[in-house]
Design a binder for these strands. Structure first.
Lengths: 250, 250
DNA sequence: TCGACTCGTAGAACAGTGTTCGTCCAAGGA
DNA sequence: TCCTTGGACGAACACTGTTCTACGAGTCGA
């Protein structure tokens, strides 16, 4: 065996080593890690590639777009949402509320990922599974099919929007904004409004800012579900609907 | 008067000419023009500056941020929303519905500007005026103050989200996607779902895709308003609430 | 009338971004 | 064995928001 030739110095070996072979799912996993660590704006092709010890161009063999990558990230995150075993039409409002909160819990646990879901039609596997579950539930309750179908749309928007709003808050806090001070500023801003043009708003400054995110979220869900309830045929309304008292009711 | 000295060639006059002196409102106007012509992603500091015959750095004397510029753009757009002269509690649901559609009309007439309003607290003058109007209306109807306050939150989210969703559609069309073909693909996608895991969804493909944007929008508004209605104290419910028949009611 | 002193105007540059091009290497098939 | 194929990837392109720094014109006080 002859002595090995030295490397020609300017002809470097092409790469160091990618520990694992690059793959679609590995890239998505990494992107989620970066997302959790630095937020959605931190998820750049370069950043993800760097985390994998390579350059951005390498990602494009497995993912056609940044948009597609983000869709995959969203789908992976959505798959963490744990759904109940089966629909319980007897307590459909409670069950939907629980699902909404579970969804928000998962979404907000991955920074501002919910921004991705706004304005994108949910066609991922987990997203469809959730749709299927809710649709089934609403039909079992007795809602007309068209009402159930459109209601899903609204419910999805409610979840996404609220999750995004919550994450905007969270990001603000993460960036060091004192949330108490922030609310104080908001409060005094409302109080400082000219009373001749904004009499109602100015007088209700406290009421406008009352309640935490969860409380407001629960309220919006309840309003939507009560509205849905009104579409129940008379028969279904009788046995399914046990009107739940609420402290805001008169 | 002596003959004028020639210009030293390499010592060019610092600038050509900004027709009008730069100003905050002129910049915002220009940004809106660019927005209408090229969409939100076309609104860059360079693009706006170019339209004004100058460089991006010049804008920063009047506007501290791109974020601030976009907020100003949103406020200017919002000021185009025409509100009714005064609240009419006797037909509050109809009036709110009209306002929602008017808001959507204005927002979608400026491409995808509604993306700006998602996740930003509406503190602009026109935005506050709308809030003031709706709050006044809801209180006159007889809703408890806390309900009215939180309802505004939900109503705003509904308007913004739907406007954004509509604009995503519109942008897709503007980019040349055949919308009929697109819906056809969606339809056959739903039909191709495995029937064992998505029986309901697969069977309701038509129902899921039924209805145009306006119809769906109207439905969501109606659901939310009916939900709100249920928070009316018994007394107010009697005279204010004339239950409106709806073709989807059973 | 003359400086000083602002303040709006910009060119250049910085550190990023998503994406594409063309080249390289290694594995698989004929 | 050669040839093809497809993933990897350095370099580059055309952008982005923002800052630095110098320059010009105008105003104000002396």
């Amino acid at each position: 065996m002859p002595a090995q030739m030295p490397e020609i110095p300017w002809h470097k070996p092409r790469k160091a080593e990618p520990r694992q072979p690059l793959s679609r799912s590995l890239i998505v996993e990494t992107a989620v890690r970066v997302l959790d660590a630095e937020g959605l704006s931190g998820v750049t092709m370069r950043r993800v590639a760097q985390e994998l010890g390579t350059g951005p161009a390498s990602l494009y063999a497995h993912v056609s777009n940044k948009e597609e990558l983000l869709d995959l990230v969203l789908e992976r995150v959505t798959s963490e949402i744990r759904m109940p075993a089966r629909p319980e039409p007897g307590r459909w409002k409670e069950q939907i509320t629980e699902i909404c909160f579970e969804a928000q819990r998962v979404l907000t646990s991955h920074r501002d990922v919910s921004l991705v879901s706004l304005g994108s039609i949910p066609l991922g596997e987990s997203q469809l599974a959730i749709t299927e579950f809710l649709l089934d539930l609403l039909l079992q309750v007795g809602l007309p099919p068209q009402v159930a179908a459109w209601a899903l749309d609204g419910l999805g928007q409610l979840i996404d929007t609220d999750a995004y709003e919550a994450s905007v808050y969270a990001e603000r806090i993460a960036r060091g904004t004192d949330i108490g001070e922030y609310f104080g500023q908001l409060h005094s801003f409302l109080l400082a409004l000219p009373a001749d043009r904004f009499p109602v708003l100015q007088g209700m400054a406290d009421t406008m800012l009352a309640g935490g995110g969860d409380e407001r979220y629960a309220f919006k869900i309840e309003v939507f579900l009560r509205g849905l309830e009104s579409y129940l045929p008379a028969g279904a309304r009788a046995d399914r609907h046990r009107p739940s008292r609420h402290r805001l009711d008169a």
